[in-house]
């Protein structure tokens, strides 16, 4: 069963804000505008984690959001890809030594692809999606 083949042309993304400053959200929405038109590749934003294949996480994971992030992650049906968008999710970014952080994201859930930037450009986010698909393909090849 080759899942990556169908993911290649149809990847539904669910966006989760774990305490971001809204900068990355603006860039994610900019990625979905007609100028970049990711629907060409079957990428679309869905409203429910149950419909999603790709979890886009932004923000450094504040304490209150940790259980919510875990719940949303568990609600996404397998197989799934997690993408961390923005510097906050990678290292905490400008909030790295805040008292209220429980992150960064890879302390809470496994992350497949990191997109650096504060905020990353839409091109960066699209490149991240491509990398995520490549990684899936590689993992598929390594499996027996």
């Amino acid at each position: 069963m080759n899942i990556t083949k169908s993911f290649n042309r149809s990847l539904w993304a669910f966006h989760f804000n774990s305490g971001s400053c809204n900068g990355c959200e603006i860039e994610i929405v900019a990625t979905l505008t007609p100028r970049y038109d990711p629907e060409r590749f079957g990428i679309k934003l869905v409203g429910s984690p149950k419909h999603a294949d790709l979890l886009l996480v932004t923000g450094p994971v504040v304490k209150k959001m940790r259980p919510r992030l875990l719940r949303v992650y568990e609600q996404i049906p397998d197989p799934k890809v997690v993408m961390c968008v923005g510097a906050c999710g990678i290292s905490g970014g400008p909030f790295y030594d805040s008292y209220n952080l429980d992150g960064p994201i890879d302390d809470v859930i496994p992350v497949d692809v990191y997109v650096p930037g504060c905020p990353p450009r839409p091109e960066g986010i699209i490149f991240g999606v491509v990398r995520a698909l490549q990684k899936l393909e590689r993992l598929q090849g390594e499996l027996p």
Binding site: I3, S6, R9, S10, P34, R40, G42, Q75, P77, P79
Partner: peptide
Amino acid sequence: AHMQARIGPPIRQPFIDTMKLLRKESV
């Protein structure tokens, strides 16, 4: 898509989406 000045998905996109959904876990 064309009315919004986009290129849009290929016409067979719903077939691809359905194939993908059929391969996914049903919770």
